[in-house]
Amino acid sequence: MLQIDEEMEKHNDLLKEIQENPTDINAIAAKRRRDFTGEFFRYVTLLSETLDGLEDRDAVARLATRCLSAVSAYDNTLESVETLDAAQAKFDDILNSPSVDAACEKIRSLAKAKELDSSLILLINSAYAAAKESQTVTNEAKDIMYHLYKATKSSLRSITPKEIKLLKYLLNITDPEERFSALATAFSPGDDHEAKDPKALYTTPKELHKWIKIMLDAYHLNKEETDIREAKQMSQPIVIQRLFILKDTIEDEYLDKKTVVADENPKKEDDTSVEEFLN
Rank of each mutant, 00 (worst) to 15 (best):
E7W: 02
M8Q: 12
D13T: 15
D13N: 12
K16S: 15
K31S: 10
K31W: 02
R33T: 02
G38F: 10
E39K: 12
E39T: 14
F40P: 08
F41D: 10
F41L: 12
F41A: 12
T50I: 01
L51E: 10
V60Y: 06
A61E: 09
R62I: 06
L63S: 06
L63M: 13
L68E: 02
A70S: 12
S72F: 04
S72Y: 06
A73D: 02
N76D: 11
N76P: 00
T83V: 06
A87E: 00
A89N: 15
A103I: 05
I107H: 02
S109K: 14
A111G: 02
A111S: 12
A111H: 01
L116G: 05
S118K: 06
L120H: 12
L120R: 13
L122M: 09
L123C: 07
N125G: 01
N125S: 08
A127Q: 09
Y128W: 15
A131E: 04
K132G: 01
T136G: 00
T136Y: 03
V137P: 01
V137I: 15
T138A: 11
T138L: 11
N139T: 07
D143L: 06
I144S: 00
L148Q: 05
L148V: 07
Y149M: 05
T152M: 15
K153R: 14
L156H: 01
S158Q: 04
L167A: 08
T174L: 06
P176A: 05
P176M: 05
A186W: 03
S188Q: 08
G190P: 01
A195W: 03
P198V: 08
L201V: 07
E207L: 08
E207D: 13
L208T: 02
K210W: 05
K213C: 09
M215K: 10
L216R: 14
A218W: 13
Y219G: 03
H220K: 01
K223T: 03
K223H: 09
R229I: 13
E230I: 05
A231Y: 13
Q233G: 11
Q236T: 15
L243Y: 11
D248G: 07
I250Y: 04
E253R: 11
Y254L: 03
L255A: 05
L255D: 05
L255T: 01
D256I: 04
K257Y: 01
T259W: 08
T272C: 05
N279R: 11
